[in-house]
Design a binder for these strands. Structure first.
Length: 261
DNA sequence: ATGGTGGAAGGTCCA
């Protein structure tokens, strides 16, 4: 089974790219973030026609939005409220095997890494704090996969320059510590780094570079984790960097993990 | 130190 995650930055604008990815990478489940699409306008019929008959999605106009496209039946679709909002940053569903997939879009956090002056950063930290609390009681013993745009690059080799990004939201110590607390609380296992342990690895490159590929100032913001019962089942991982070079791309590349189940 | 781009809007906000 192959599970992929991709921040698509408008599922309607990039519908042809999603269909191309489904055709080329053939994931069994593709989790999307930033669909920016109300549910009534979600292009479900296109995904059904492409061989993904089981779709769950939660969107709103303009911002946020998460979805899962699946070849396999998805049961008990649901979501939880985070940081006191109901803003389409989480959706979950369970496979026949009893494995639950959680798809998250964690707040980006704004520009200033200070929770006292920047409400967006405070929101991000509150979301992470609640995710840690929830992970402690709901994750470790379960068969679960957590994927998504977590908007944090935790390791030094998850960013192009650790030193230059220490004060840049997505790689500040306060965020990295918060994400590490989530991982510890749920005993979450990083299935991507477990399979690609060494070297620089990115899943996002800014639109603001003249040549994103040549500059290569990326960050690994998108993640696929498992709980301990599934950790040995994740046998390979890939970040599809070439997709960032497709026409009118998302600024994120898809991340894919293959499981032996 | 600054500004750079892209999406959904139809203002600006968000990333």
């Amino acid at each position: 089974m192959r599970i992929a995650t991709w921040n698509i930055n408008s599922v309607r604008l990039r519908l042809p790219l999603v269909l191309k990815l489904l055709g080329e990478a053939k994931p069994d489940i593709l989790c999307l973030q930033e669909t920016k699409c109300p549910d009534a306008a979600f292009p479900e019929a296109d995904f059904v026609a492409a061989g993904y008959p089981h779709c769950v999605y939660r969107g709103e106009k303009g911002y946020n939005g998460v979805a899962m496209l699946s070849r396999l039946p998805l049961h008990q679709p649901h979501h939880l409220l985070w940081a006191g909002k109901d803003d389409c940053r989480h959706i979950a569903a369970t496979l026949d095997s009893g494995i639950t997939i959680h798809n998250f879009y964690i707040p980006a956090g704004g520009d200033i890494p200070d929770a006292t002056t920047n409400p967006k950063f405070a929101h991000k930290l509150q979301f992470l704090d609640e995710l840690a609390t929830w992970s402690k009681t709901h994750a470790a013993a379960q068969k679960a996969v957590l994927v998504g745009d977590l908007n944090i690059a935790p390791r030094e080799d998850d960013v192009w320059s650790h030193k230059q990004l220490l004060k840049v939201v997505s790689h500040t110590p306060i965020e990295v510590d918060a994400l590490n607390r989530v991982m510890a609380a749920g005993q979450w296992h990083d299935a991507v780094r477990a399979n690609i342990p060494d070297g620089k690895l990115y899943s996002w490159w800014s639109y603001r570079a003249q040549d994103w590929n040549a500059a290569d100032r990326g960050r690994r913001l998108d993640h696929i984790w498992t709980t301990p019962p599934l950790r040995e089942w994740a046998v390979s991982a890939e970040i599809m960097r070439e997709v960032r070079g497709w026409e009118r791309p998302s600024d994120h590349a898809p991340v894919l993990v293959e499981f032996k189940f």
